[in-house]
């Protein structure tokens, strides 16, 4: 559907990919109207830049934005996944060693195997996500008439559930497998140290009360025991 890709590039150029602006532009405002106003912290609001892309295509960035905002919607607990920087996180991960198959045994022959035998595809994560996004968009077009990122929030949720359950038909591998990889990446980006590009302003750590670093409790472990702590979370970046 080349005719859809061209205007999307235009949107992206003007709006930036990973920030709140991109989410609004790509969803035509519909998602914004239906979700409650996010309690975006001051720092997260400032970070809505035109993040340069290292690996992702515009269509992939748009997919990740929509997918991460479906999995992690903005609400009073945190900004949305993309507002927290998850597209930047994913872009860096897929551009780097992990994305390109480092620490992955890639010798053949390749056979599907049994579920107990785990990941058996020849694809690197970069290649896997590229193929998965194409398949997810094809499924979305066939079922809902548009690419995933252009669906209404309700249809996005329905498409996501169809992939989660495996009901969505993908040509090369199970849609559930794609969902699980997407889900794992969303959780990694949302909860990892912010130095990796996601979890901006430690939004997820604030949400759950994880203090991050420095975590030296030898003198306070007894004093803190059983008590709710209100510690300002600290990232690796706060110590360099």
């Amino acid at each position: 559907m080349a005719d859809q890709a061209i205007p999307r590039r235009g949107f992206l150029k003007g709006a930036g990919v990973a920030g709140a602006g991109a989410a609004a532009a790509l969803t035509g405002g519909a998602a914004q109207a239906q979700t409650p106003a996010p309690a975006v912290t001051a720092a997260a609001k400032q970070v809505a830049p035109n993040e340069p892309l290292l690996a992702l295509t515009a269509a992939e960035a748009a997919f990740f934005t929509a997918a991460f905002d479906t999995l992690i919607p903005a609400d009073k607990l945190s900004p949305s996944g993309s507002e927290c920087g998850l597209v930047t996180f994913m872009d860096r991960q897929l551009a780097g060693a992990w994305g390109n198959g480092a620490r992955l045994y890639r010798a053949g022959p390749f056979m599907p195997g049994k579920p107990e035998q785990g990941y058996q595809l020849p694809l690197t994560p970069r290649e896997f996500f590229a193929a998965g996004i194409k398949a997810a968009n094809a499924y979305a077009r066939k079922t809902f008439g548009k690419d995933f990122d252009r669906l209404s929030p309700t249809d996005r949720e329905a498409a996501m559930k169809a992939m989660e359950s495996g009901q969505a038909q993908f040509p090369d591998f199970a849609s559930k497998m794609f969902f699980e990889a997407l889900y794992a990446s969303a959780m990694e980006g949302f909860f990892a140290d912010p130095i990796h590009g996601g979890n901006r302003d430690k939004a997820s750590w604030r949400m759950i009360g994880y203090p991050g670093l420095p975590a030296t409790y030898a003198r306070t472990a007894e004093q803190y025991r059983g008590k709710k702590l209100n510690i300002e979370p600290q990232s690796i970046a706060d110590f360099i």
């Binding site: 480092a102 620490r103 992955l104 045994y105 890639r106 010798a107 056979m111 195997g113 049994k114 107990e116 035998q117 785990g118 990941y119 058996q120």
Partner: peptide
């Protein structure tokens, strides 16, 4: 690094073992 060295795995002697391509388990 599994690319350097890994195992193949199967549940029973009659099965075909396949490589643990990355550390999951």
């Amino acid at each position: 690094d599994t690319a350097t060295e890994t195992l193949t795995m199967r549940n029973a002697p009659g099965d075909t073992a396949l490589p643990m391509r990355r550390w999951d388990v």
